[in-house]
Nucleic acid binder design. Structure first.
Lengths: 338, 338
DNA sequence: CTGTTAGCGCATTCAG
DNA sequence: CTGAATGCGCTAACAG
């Protein structure tokens, strides 16, 4: 039997000798009270029959699903962690999360997932920086389903209820300062254009950092995709006598840099000083340990869910900022310690 | 408006001047034909009104959800990759996946998620080695919902339709052989008990490998959790003159070992030869590169979804094996190359 | 081909 | 405090 007819409240009602309405009442802890006696009877019957409420029927009936849809670029690393925290936060307030991966910023997949989630009539949506443009998104999410962005900057109000973003720009800006303070005479940012808007923010922060703290200091920008890091480092070391600072897109890229340096016998942190982002497992466990920026997962998840809940509750936007920016925390390790 | 009433087939039917059955036919039912003309009218009306089918209503009505529930220990690394592949495979056959993380083998969370998925009336379940025991699982999954395990060994037939497992034991067994061939005089397995059954399989493989290929060769077993790897390695190097082989639980653990060795100036691969598992990013990008076992994600996902589909189709189990074992592939890198 | 009708399982009025 | 009745949006026979 592909679907061996599950037990419904009707059967529970019969077994307990009450009406289905009563069963519904006691099982869903609705505002309505019932006598101790009926409660006991119903709960017993439900227990014995192995009753399990049918989410679809319930959702259909009350026009509310208690489900939140999440779309992230991948299930792993930063994104995975974020999803885990979101899942936890959601559960704490009685919601449940449906997580989809867009396979690394693929607009077609994003679109398909969005469509599925909307067909499920999720109560809200949390998306990590959609690759599809404003217009496309608007044409899909016009259903009145609240959408909060994670790491999405400057989204029009009619599309996204709000956004809670990480302070990547600030982190990169500060990274420049740290490297300058540590005596670097040249500073490089090695990004990852494939990560779209994330890379953009980091680059902006880097440039603003150079402008503020880097007077008289040279800088370079490169992209990690397809880059021969060994050759790149060799070139750097050859060109410059002073210590060189490198800000990596994230700890993954930082690891590649670290390995290349180790392989070439370039001394870290004496010749090159390195900072990553994410404070991944990699940063903690590599040698030398990579200085990195820790991510406030809990805070970000909490705020995102909070924004949705708020939207569920009141129709008007509160006085709160639509776009929240959560700062990262610098964790210094051996790649920048002298 | 928290739920601005979405458009239904009724409205589409009115706009197109046909009955709701016709709308349902052309929109979501392939089987039944309609005249070109009505199809056009209906599709146009649906398009203009922005109709989006209500999954709950559809599922409720046909008693089938086209949804598959997935429970994995975490959203990242091996598990995350697996989930991505499952998602893809599922989509290819018209299903959609709901992925939940059990927060690292937490039985309580597993249970909760299972409950939610069953309430959603998912058509099938895919779980990664549940931490809760057979009995508990049976008491929950008695609903007739097919369950296929990923990396679950010896689950009773009345609980799990089948299983598709990775050949961890075989990989560890072969790892021993490789290390012996490379001249190691002592071989260690550094596991991770927290990963339950996965660790168990690897340990079994290790022991079987020692029995087969390790005559006259010493071996040790340790657990990475809370282990001071530096001290451990120092001890090993001090005790043994010959090259030492280490099989790490996975590439994460391997990285810790690598870093500790680098820090202590212990030469890899001359003094210590190292093999990881998973062929993660880490293995490829660390220095020296870590020899590791590549995981056939596609194959595993394909088989798992296939098993479910098969179950959906026929009630009888086919002649196929209930438990499939998919082999890993050895990728040799610098930590074992002489 | 197309329309009519009867549920799917549950929440929710509104009477008793 | 409890029960009968109505509808959520859609699919699946079954008639026309």
């Amino acid at each position: 039997m592909s679907k061996p007819k599950q037990v419904t409240i009707v059967e529970v009602a019969e077994a307990a000798g009450v009406s289905i309405a009563t069963v519904s009442n006691v099982l869903n802890r609705g505002g309505i009270r019932s006598s101790k006696e009926t409660i006991r009877k119903v709960e017993l019957a439900a227990e014995q029959l192995g009753y399990r409420r049918n989410t679809m029927a319930a959702g259909l009936s009350r026009n509310k699903t208690y489900e939140i849809g999440v779309i992230i670029p991948a299930l792993g690393s930063y994104y995975g962690q974020l999803a885990e925290h979101l899942q936890l936060e959601a559960h704490n307030v009685g919601y449940h999360l449906s997580v989809f991966s867009s396979g690394g910023f693929d607009p077609a997949i994003e679109r398909r997932h969005l469509e599925v989630l909307l067909e499920r009539r999720v109560d809200g949506l949390i998306c990590h920086g959609l690759a599809m443009g404003f217009e496309t998104t608007r044409s899909i999410v016009n259903s009145g389903t609240p959408l909060v962005m994670i790491n999405g900057w400057n989204w029009p109000e009619d599309i996204a209820t709000g956004a809670v973003n990480l302070g990547f720009a600030g982190a990169c800006e500060q990274s420049v300062k740290v490297l300058v303070d540590r005596g670097c005479g040249t500073i490089c940012y090695i990004g990852s254009k494939g990560s779209k808007v994330i890379d953009e923010r980091r680059r902006l922060g880097f440039q603003s950092g150079m402008a503020q703290h880097g007077s008289g200091i040279g800088h370079e920008i490169a992209d990690s995709k397809g880059l021969d890091i060994g050759a790149y480092l060799s070139g750097l070391v050859q060109r410059y006598q002073h210590p060189i600072g490198i800000i990596a897109f994230d700890d993954h890229v930082a690891l590649r840099i670290l390995s290349a340096a180790n392989r070439l016998g370039i001394d870290i942190p004496n010749r090159i000083r390195l900072i990553g982002i994410n404070n991944d497992y990699i940063a903690k466990e590599s040698y030398p340990g990579i200085s990195s920026w820790d991510i406030p997962y809990y805070e970000q998840a909490h705020q995102a869910i909070g924004k949705l809940l708020h939207k569920f509750g009141s129709k008007e936007d509160s006085g709160e900022d639509r776009e929240i920016e959560v700062p990262l925390t610098f964790i210094e390790r051996e790649t920048t310690k002298l």
